Amino acid sequence: MQRTDWEQLDAPVRAAVECRTGSVHSARTAAAGKNSAIAALLGTDDGPVFVKGLRVDDPRAACHGREAAVSRYVTALSPELLWRTEADGWDLLGFRAAPGRHADYAPGSPDVPKVVNAMRRLALLWCPDLPQIKRAERRWARYLDSADLQLLHGDVLLHTDYSPDNVLIHGEDARLIDWAWPTLGAGFIDPACLIVRLIFAGHTPQEAEACVNELPSWANAPARGPDVIAEALARMWAEIAAADPTGWKQQMVKSANRWHAHRRR
């Protein structure tokens, strides 16, 4: 997505932000991330604030609604949402800025166990069945038979988008950002989403599964659960890449298909 820098925003938008942050004396547009037209780290009198924004008529604006809805339930693992506002046609979210760098998923990276530990902690958090949050069996309904969909049902809060851009590593801690696709479902779904990302980063399917083997949500998954979500993710990524054949999306298709083929052996 093409980014809009702080200096390019019209005065009413900047004023609406500064009404909540105080004077902005520095601004740096984030290079990473794909879901927001505005993604800026602002230096303010009260400390750094990360602001993200989309036009209110952008089809992806629903992602902001989901992120705002879930934010209060994930502060143990994610930067705090300080405010949300609309100004001059923009939907804006302001977060307390969190330190860190984006995760490295390469084989042997010390970041991978930190991400897995964050996933373990996330599985212990509670979130109500909010209208903005999808149910897993509905989200993946068009990719699976109805009998298989029931295996995805559950009440665990899932992040589901484990792009390394959506994880900040700071010391021994991994923090999850960009809650565009929060989902309630079976606990083994998040490990599955990470497995595909690990294969994309160079792991074999066996190595990727080994990274999550000790997670209770994975170890206690129903026998066919991983097979079913592998099929759903392969079909989902094929659909995404068909609509937008960007190179990295094509690679995600290959990664998801590789894991699906491994599960079918």
Score class of each variant (00 low, 15 high):
residue 63 C to V: 03
residue 244 D to G: 06
residue 131 P to S: 11
residue 144 L to D: 02
residue 242 A to R: 12
residue 90 W to A: 06
residue 78 S to K: 06
residue 242 A to Q: 15
residue 200 F to T: 00
residue 149 L to T: 02
residue 138 R to Q: 12
residue 255 S to N: 10
residue 163 S to Y: 07
residue 98 A to K: 01
residue 175 R to T: 06
residue 35 N to H: 03
residue 131 P to I: 06
residue 235 R to S: 12
residue 177 I to D: 02
residue 71 S to F: 11
residue 148 D to I: 01
residue 214 E to L: 04
residue 8 Q to P: 00
residue 119 M to V: 09
residue 52 K to F: 05
residue 187 G to D: 08
residue 207 E to G: 07
residue 217 S to V: 14
residue 32 A to F: 10
residue 158 L to H: 02
residue 68 A to E: 12
residue 27 A to E: 04
residue 47 G to D: 08
residue 213 N to R: 14
residue 150 Q to H: 09
residue 168 L to A: 15
residue 191 P to H: 08
residue 82 L to N: 03
residue 243 A to M: 06
residue 83 W to M: 02
residue 184 L to K: 14
residue 198 L to W: 03
residue 23 S to K: 11
residue 30 A to H: 06
residue 44 T to S: 04
residue 108 G to L: 10
residue 89 G to T: 10
residue 169 I to D: 02
residue 145 D to H: 08
residue 123 A to I: 14
residue 212 V to E: 04
residue 99 P to S: 14
residue 174 A to M: 15
residue 5 D to I: 08
residue 74 V to I: 11
residue 180 A to W: 00
residue 168 L to V: 13
residue 101 R to F: 07
residue 223 A to F: 13
residue 199 I to P: 02
residue 105 Y to I: 04
residue 203 H to F: 14
residue 150 Q to M: 10
residue 213 N to W: 13
residue 128 P to L: 06
residue 174 A to Y: 13
residue 49 V to Y: 01
residue 265 R to G: 12
residue 196 V to R: 15
residue 160 T to W: 05
residue 34 K to D: 12
residue 233 L to E: 10
residue 254 K to Y: 08
residue 41 L to G: 08
residue 211 C to P: 00
residue 42 L to K: 00
residue 104 D to R: 04
residue 257 N to Y: 13
